[in-house]
Amino acid sequence: MRKWMPATLPGLIAGLWGNQAGAAGLDVKFEIPRLNVAEYHRPYVAVWLERPDQSVATNLAVWYQQSDGAEGKGTKWLAELRQWWRKSGRESQLPIDGVSGATKPAGEHALSFTEGKAPLAKLPAGDYRLVVEAAREVGGRELLRVPFTWPPKSAQTLKAEGKEELGAISLQLKP
């Protein structure tokens, strides 16, 4: 026992560290375009992973007005994120811990998710799509999908380009 310990402990520690450093996960970057409009409201945004049949594998982020304003509860307009609302939102108890958040200004936003750490649970091997949906008051609605296969064989970066309510999207897969 005493002889075994010193020999394995470094390996065990290395293994732990190695696991930590190379944790599988995904990084999502997307741009909320700066728009030159008279009346600008920050968009509601939902980011999730869906299976090929469009069922939701996991919610990653939902940004909406958190406070109750003059127009009622911030959740009143959540149904404007039509796809997300239909596929997930309406079945969810809001706010969703680690997913719900306040709306964000125009610019690039980076989200990082580690497999096995909420909100990205262990993802069974298979085909998925990252979905980003944005809906803006007095503005439009746009939804983009980035297909990918999990787990990735190597680090990959996948991209998509929005037209109106979303700019460039990049999905970085970390094996």
Partner: peptide, 11 residues
């Protein structure tokens, strides 16, 4: 004709 049919909060 209802003003809305899909709502995310009581209203």
């Amino acid at each position: 004709v209802p003003s809305s049919t899909v709502l995310s909060a009581p209203q």
